[in-house]
Design a protein around this nucleic acid. Structure first.
Lengths: 183, 183
DNA sequence: GCAGAAACGTCAATATGGCTGACATAAATT
DNA sequence: AATTTATGTCAGCCATATTGACGTTTCTGC
């Protein structure tokens, strides 16, 4: 164990991953993908986090604004399904966004109990700005794998998502057909 | 806007994504990948979250145990770099894991100020169990894209990660060569 | 050898974003 | 008319993050 010493932060690091452990059933574990997902998502959301600070908003505000912008007329109940939080949690964040004019509510036409949610131009602009940052990162990454690779990435991500009991937004996403795999 | 009504939760949903907005520069935004990443990561970490509840642990505990197990002898400072949290935040979680015997500290040989972190068998077992859940999901998804697709996915995820100012764990990850792209 | 920096620990206060439980109202459904 | 649904809200709790300040041990540079 003498070689597990990092004498100085500026010296070349001797850190290395442990021998790949396997699951109880002997099947190899996907340590590489697990960690890549962690770091990729950390940096991916970091793009938006940084920008949101300037507005006094957090990730929760971003998620709400994002889905309301993308799916205009979303009901409160739908949003709760998508975000998997309670209405009390949503309440605080949503109230702020309404008060500050990023989102507006409209009473449902068919069902007047419903509050349909819509992003204002101000809200849309912020969401587009944040999506722009994330798009830049995604474009950079997709360039590395080419158009066929991009479809593989989409297929992979879709297959990572639980399909049982999908909410409405997920259904909308999965209605979009994947491009045929041209391997 | 009459068609944006969802009269009943059990009826077929008419929800659909808004017309794809574009960034200020006119470049199209990657709404699809942005949302796929959101849902994929949500369900990916959900696997572990559910299991962790039984232990009274949260995501923070998982992250700490994961990286300590994978990179034995990790210093506290390295962990702070990787997790991008403050030592005060780490403190509480780490103390719990030490107290409950999931992690042990060893004084550094070269530098006695350092507390090198190691997972106990108990800690390793829990991390392997959680990784097993996540591996099952990843395997299922990778099956959809084949071996060549799996490499594309790895390349994509690596390219999504910031390379400027990488911490030691990231360096270790990126030292692993990517398989040659066989397109 | 001594000054200063580094690695780590800890106390206190605060913020965010989750949670549960309880209760209220308006509108739809039966 | 009774019940259920969709939503809102009050009150309190918890987990996890933050900043600032301070202390100890140990290493490093002069």
């Amino acid at each position: 164990m003498a070689d597990i010493n990092f004498s100085s932060p500026t010296l070349s690091p001797e850190l290395r991953a442990a021998e790949p452990a396997t699951a109880a059933d002997g099947e190899p574990l996907r340590w590489d993908i697990i960690e890549l997902l962690f770091f990729a998502y950390r940096d991916f959301v970091g793009d938006a986090d940084h920008e949101l600070e300037a507005f006094g908003f957090g990730r929760a505000h971003h998620r709400v604004m994002h889905f309301v912008t993308r799916y205009p007329g979303l009901k409160v109940a739908d949003l709760l399904d998508v975000l998997r939080i309670t209405k009390q949690s949503l309440g605080r964040v949503l109230k702020q966004l309404l008060d500050e004019g990023y989102i507006v509510q409209k009473t449902g036409n068919n069902d007047r109990r419903q509050r349909l949610l819509f992003a204002t131009p101000k809200g849309e602009a912020l969401v587009a700005k944040l999506a722009g940052l994330q798009t830049r990162r995604i474009d950079r990454a997709l360039e590395q794998v080419g158009p066929a690779g991009a479809e593989k990435v989409r297929q992979f991500l879709r297959a990572m998502i639980d399909r049982d009991d999908p909410d409405k937004v997920l259904e909308a996403i999965f209605r979009t057909p994947v491009a045929a795999a041209k391997e």
